[in-house]
């Protein structure tokens, strides 16, 4: 038997990326558990249970983020994405499997996505320079999340904490590309 262990790395590094300017800050967030639930149609009862699991208020409006950073995002009628810090006593994946009881496809997507936090007074400008949306704070309020196009990639955007703080969720193989564009924009917006 080998005495080797498998080490977690992303883009060749086991350290999260950081970039900072007076008006904008980028931070890659790791150690987040992500679970995707897919079904022909998510039953409302399951939504309730998932919301309870995610400790999110306002069930039914599931495109939202809770106070403890847990996110329950409605990707479509058929799909939910749940994100939480990987510091739970039990894995989120196992909890969701238990709730779902075989009535939906549950996939552990923790390795599939990368989270980048974008903050600072230029954050909204940076984001609207790379997506087709303007992120008006009156429409896209704190706690909201939406899915949109970012250059040639998809991104899930969550407005968190305050107006100039966004959590961006990218498919991980495209995160390096997205990071370059964000950093580039942050340098000269």
């Amino acid at each position: 038997m080998s005495r080797l262990t498998l080490r977690y790395t992303l883009d060749g590094s086991d350290r999260a990326r950081e970039f900072s300017r007076p008006h904008a800050k980028l931070l890659e967030v790791r150690k987040i558990e992500i679970v995707r639930v897919s079904a022909r149609e998510i039953p409302s009862q399951l939504d309730l249970q998932l919301a309870d699991l995610a400790r999110v208020d306002g069930v039914g409006l599931t495109n939202t983020v809770s106070e403890n950073d847990t996110v329950l995002a409605t990707l479509s009628r058929r799909e939910r994405l749940i994100l939480c810090k990987a510091d739970r006593p039990r894995s989120l994946y196992n909890d969701v499997i238990e709730i779902v009881e075989g009535c939906a496809l549950v996939t552990d997507a923790s390795h599939q996505f990368v989270i980048i936090d974008l903050s600072g007074r230029a954050a909204t400008e940076i984001l609207s320079s790379l997506t087709p949306l303007s992120f008006e704070s009156s429409i896209f309020t704190i706690g909201d999340c939406l899915r949109t196009v970012f250059a040639d990639t998809n991104v899930l955007v969550i407005r968190s904490e305050d107006e100039a703080n966004y959590r961006l969720i990218f498919e991980q193989t495209l995160a390096g590309y997205a990071w370059r564009l964000l950093e580039d924009a942050a340098k000269n917006v």
Partner: peptide, 20 residues
């Protein structure tokens, strides 16, 4: 073109073992 020039023209996905 905006910022979509040079290496940012199109996303090119890396392998997990890209560095190696």
């Amino acid at each position: 073109a905006g910022r979509r020039v040079g290496e940012n023209l199109n996303p090119l996905r890396p392998l997990p073992s890209a560095a190696r």
